[in-house]
Amino acid sequence: MNDKLKAIVEGIESKKGKDAVVLDLAGKNSVAEYFVICTGSSEPNLKAIVDEVEDKMEGLKETRLRIEGYNEGKWAILDYGDIMVHVFLEETRKFYNLENLWNQSEILYRG
């Protein structure tokens, strides 16, 4: 994994994010090269994970292009251009089931 992906995973794990997965989507879509998916245990935990990932990426001088869902507290997507970080509450993650949608992708990390 590259330094950005490592920093994202470290941020997730430091805030007790669960079931982190890094999918390699290079050449499979036009949205991003990598999806990072994890689960937060509650709305405050989800927001803490997002905030920590943003801090880690700022430390690498990476600029977030956009964020979606943060205020709703059931999911959040951080767009870093080549990497999309998806943080879900458990029931929302099951509903969207991104791992199944992209099941042909190589798994670079599973926490």
Results as ranks from 00 to 15, higher is better:
99 E>A: 05
69 G>M: 06
80 Y>E: 04
2 N>M: 06
50 V>E: 00
43 E>P: 13
59 G>M: 07
89 L>P: 05
54 E>R: 12
25 L>E: 05
79 D>Y: 05
12 I>D: 02
29 N>K: 10
12 I>N: 00
83 I>C: 04
108 L>A: 10
15 K>E: 03
93 R>D: 02
55 D>R: 14
95 F>D: 07
57 M>I: 06
48 A>H: 03
34 Y>S: 09
100 N>R: 14
39 T>S: 09
64 R>I: 13
93 R>L: 05
83 I>D: 07
109 Y>N: 11
102 W>N: 01
90 E>C: 01
33 E>F: 14
101 L>F: 11
109 Y>F: 13
74 K>R: 15
6 K>D: 13
106 E>I: 11
9 V>S: 03
88 F>H: 00
40 G>Y: 01
59 G>Q: 00
31 V>C: 04
14 S>N: 09
66 R>F: 08
23 L>E: 05
98 L>P: 12
84 M>Q: 11
3 D>M: 13
104 Q>P: 11
55 D>S: 11
42 S>Y: 10
106 E>G: 10
22 V>H: 06
76 A>V: 15
15 K>I: 12
28 K>A: 11
32 A>M: 06
30 S>A: 14
103 N>V: 05
47 K>Y: 04
73 G>I: 08
51 D>N: 12
46 L>N: 00
105 S>A: 15
99 E>T: 07
19 D>Y: 03
36 V>G: 07
7 A>Q: 08
23 L>P: 02
30 S>F: 14
34 Y>G: 06
11 G>D: 02
45 N>Q: 15
26 A>F: 14
92 T>L: 03
21 V>T: 14
106 E>S: 12
81 G>H: 05
5 L>S: 04
25 L>I: 04
24 D>P: 05
92 T>A: 12
111 G>P: 12
62 E>Q: 15
71 N>I: 01
107 I>L: 08
67 I>V: 15
26 A>L: 15
48 A>N: 04
69 G>Q: 02
51 D>T: 06
101 L>M: 13
47 K>F: 00
60 L>M: 09
49 I>Y: 02
85 V>I: 06
42 S>I: 00
90 E>L: 08
109 Y>D: 12
90 E>D: 15
58 E>C: 06
32 A>W: 11
56 K>H: 09
29 N>P: 00
73 G>M: 01
100 N>M: 12
23 L>R: 00
61 K>A: 14
13 E>V: 11
67 I>W: 08
90 E>F: 04
36 V>N: 06
20 A>I: 00
99 E>K: 04
98 L>F: 06
97 N>Y: 10
18 K>F: 09
15 K>H: 03
22 V>E: 05
104 Q>E: 15
56 K>P: 13
103 N>D: 14
94 K>H: 11
40 G>I: 09
46 L>F: 00
3 D>Q: 14
37 I>L: 13
104 Q>G: 08
81 G>S: 03
13 E>P: 00
102 W>G: 01
87 V>E: 03
86 H>G: 05
69 G>R: 00
27 G>C: 03
55 D>K: 14
104 Q>L: 10
53 V>H: 02
61 K>S: 15
60 L>E: 11
19 D>S: 10
31 V>N: 12
38 C>N: 06
16 K>S: 09
100 N>K: 14
108 L>H: 09
83 I>S: 02
20 A>L: 04
7 A>G: 05
107 I>P: 00
97 N>L: 06
59 G>Y: 02
2 N>V: 05
73 G>K: 06
35 F>E: 09
61 K>I: 07
106 E>N: 12
24 D>A: 01
